[in-house]
Simulated scan of single mutants.
Amino acid sequence: MKITGTFLDEITHDIPSQNWGPDEWRRDFDAMQQVGIDTVILIRAGYRNRATFDSDVLNGHRDMLPAYTDLVDLFLTEAGMRDMNFFFGTYDAGTFWDEGDYRTEVAINKNFCAEVVDRYGDRDAFAGWYISHEINAYDEDQMVVYEELADHLRGLKDVPILMSPYIRGPKQFGEEALGLAEHVATWEQVFARIQDHVDIVAFQDGNVALTDLPRYLEANRKLAARYGLTSWSNVETFDRDVHIQFPPIDFRKLRYKIEQATAANVDKLITFEFSHFLSPNADHPAARRLHQRYREWIEG
């Protein structure tokens, strides 16, 4: 298998901006297409006081910074020209979710996503929703959010709904990490609740040791199948194992992760994220070299 989908990190939350304009984005969509990417996922339509377009809903909610370029229109246009599927990622207020005020987060997103459908819902490339609020285990209040928000999104535009959760693994949680058995138990609970609300699950693959990853990939794929969800793998192309946050990953690790996801028989490989970490146009020299190694490998 090769990577056929990528997130689009639009307004930079925890990685540096590359300060791209429309021309640079067009070149990168060309580069994506050349390596077989057919799906692009807006990781979030806005974060705190920044957004990908000037939204009346968000401007009415808080003081927003201006969106000088309509990135949603740009991405939908470029995706449409290349027959790519575009998944729209929801808004993250950056406070309510972290503080447990899930009802406010849902209320904002309901109005915001209705505005999105009014503006962009008829575009051919608009092929799915992405719930950008990440979870790592079962939480009753978060389940209500997923149920209610997913149902609202499907009512606005009936297209597949994607989630990309993270594993509560030792790289991020240390001694509070969940072991494999605990991971399976908590995600049994999650999938039992959301199986009729979410269509696709793409677990992030970077939070456990590489030698443990095959067991998690297999367990995640079996769990998804049991509850009728399509199983993708989010093959991270940044490296969590070094002290700098976050450089492009070592190609040997990337190849290993792709091989293990292929062996686990997942349905599709996506990545966070092509433009910063795997693109020939990326600012980081190691990303450009990673692109060279990756192309040499997939082209045989």
Rank of each mutant, 00 (worst) to 15 (best):
F75Q: 05
L76R: 00
T77D: 02
E78R: 00
E78N: 00
E78S: 01
E78P: 02
A79L: 00
G80F: 14
M81A: 14
M81G: 08
M81P: 05
R82L: 10
R82F: 09
R82Q: 07
D83H: 10
D83E: 09
D83V: 09
F86T: 02
F87H: 03
F87E: 02
F87W: 06
F88A: 14
Y91C: 05
Y91T: 01
D92V: 01
A93T: 12
G94C: 03
G94M: 01
T95K: 13
T95D: 09
F96H: 15
F96E: 14
F96Q: 11
F96D: 15
W97A: 03
W97T: 03
D98E: 07
D98Y: 08
D101N: 03
Y102E: 00
R103G: 12
T104C: 03
T104S: 10
E105L: 08
A107H: 04
I108A: 03
I108K: 06
I108Y: 05
N109T: 01
N109P: 04
F112R: 02
C113A: 08
C113T: 09
A114I: 04
A114C: 08
A114S: 14
E115L: 05
V116C: 13
V116Y: 08
V116L: 12
V117E: 08
R119K: 13
Y120D: 07
Y120V: 10
G121H: 07
G121I: 14
D122C: 11
D122H: 13
D122G: 13
D122R: 15
R123Y: 00
A125K: 09
A125Y: 08
A127C: 14
G128V: 15
W129L: 07
W129N: 06
Y130L: 11
Y130S: 10
Y130G: 09
Y130T: 13
I131F: 06
I131D: 07
S132A: 14
S132I: 06
S132Q: 06
H133V: 12
E134M: 12
E134L: 12
E134C: 11
E134H: 09
I135A: 08
N136K: 09
A137Y: 15
D139V: 12
E140K: 03
E140R: 04
D141T: 15
V145T: 12
Y146P: 13
Y146S: 07
E147R: 15
E147V: 09
E148F: 14
E148K: 11
L149V: 00
A150E: 05
D151V: 10
D151E: 14
L153K: 12
R154Y: 15
R154T: 13
G155Y: 13
G155D: 10
G155Q: 13
L156D: 01
D158T: 07
V159H: 04
I161W: 13
L162R: 12
M163V: 13
M163A: 02
M163I: 13
M163P: 06
S164C: 13
S164G: 04
I167H: 06
G169S: 02
K171E: 02
K171G: 01
Q172A: 04
G174L: 00
